[in-house]
Design a protein around this nucleic acid. Structure first.
Lengths: 175, 175
DNA sequence: CTGATCATGTAAGGGGTTACATGATTTT
DNA sequence: AAAATCATGTAACCCCTTACATGATCAG
């Protein structure tokens, strides 16, 4: 699945919590990955160098000489990351929209209620469109019993997206 | 998301229905894509040439000379495709397992009841493992209120996978 | 002092996207 | 005759994975 600069935003997101080395970033990805994503060193280190060159992150120089390279966000990095959190979700691609939503959700602190509500709202809009689309497809596919597999896939997706909608709406009422 | 020879099996799957040209394959992908997948010509044509070389597909030569290249499965192609339908699902990667399952389901005709049951069974096994894993993670993450986003993601995944399990179990009882 | 973990990278190759290139056939 | 669609490809570029390479530091 093609992603749009995903790694960049993941790194910015991690560094927005606290300064880290490439090695720390890898460890954190691995610990938190289960529900979403991970990346190998061979992606992380070149990306860190790219972000450094783009001045979205900067080295923290320790007093003692050391191989360890600890990075922090620059002002530009902070800005870009916050813009990403608030940007529109919908790329029209089901998989991408879902990934994008999950990745942003992952980096929200419990304090960002406004941003959380905004994000949930965007997601619900996308979901409503997708549910409507899937219902149309389901109505069509039932006429072709030889496409039972396709029908089951659509039913699965529809069940999931409806359940997700209910979950976010509940979340809205709760807080 | 890394895929393992996905396009190959998609093409074999389409050609197992009936002979087609690369152009037909693209059309079919686009029509049926919504719930799963598509591919551009720049992937399809080279892959067709690769499959031809590997003798998994063969050209049907028309009597009149024409640019149109219509392909059909060879015996090897048929065998490989059927093996793929029955192979174990679990790669240990949530996303890959799901994609793999959906893609196979997509190409089952309504006649393949045995294969369908086998596939649903494999999927249910995977789902039960994933549900157990997610419940563990959820129990842990509720202790860290600053990770609300992560908690919501896990809840979403858990809801989805439980709903999917119920759907496939229902499917089992129905037929 | 040996093995585990910390720490930073490069190389090769597969898969996927977008853009480009070309020409035949069919429809308006 | 022009425009849409049929039809088959190549090129450049990005993302991702696996494997390889190297050396420091720390715990037993």
């Amino acid at each position: 699945m093609a992603r749009f600069n995903t790694l960049q935003y993941m790194i910015l997101g991690l560094l927005s919590r606290k300064p880290m080395t490439g090695y720390d970033i890898k460890q954190t990805f691995d610990q938190e990955k289960a529900e979403f994503w991970t990346a190998p060193f061979s992606q992380i280190y070149p990306e860190l160098n790219r972000l450094l060159k783009a001045e979205l992150i900067a080295l923290i120089m320790p007093k003692e000489a050391s191989r360890k390279k600890t990075y922090q966000l620059t002002a530009d990095g902070h800005t870009l990351f916050k813009e990403w959190l608030l940007a529109p979700l919908n790329q029209g691609n089901t998989q991408l929209d879902n990934d994008n939503f999950i990745l942003r959700l992952h980096f929200l602190g419990s304090t960002d209620e406004k941003v959380l509500k905004h994000l949930l709202n965007l997601r619900c809009q996308t979901l409503r469109i997708e549910v409507a689309q899937l219902e149309l497809e389901l109505n069509e596919v039932v006429n072709y019993p030889e496409q039972l597999g396709r029908q089951l896939i659509i039913e699965k997706e529809l069940t999931n997206k409806k359940a997700e909608l209910i979950l976010w709406q509940k979340q809205f009422q709760d807080n």
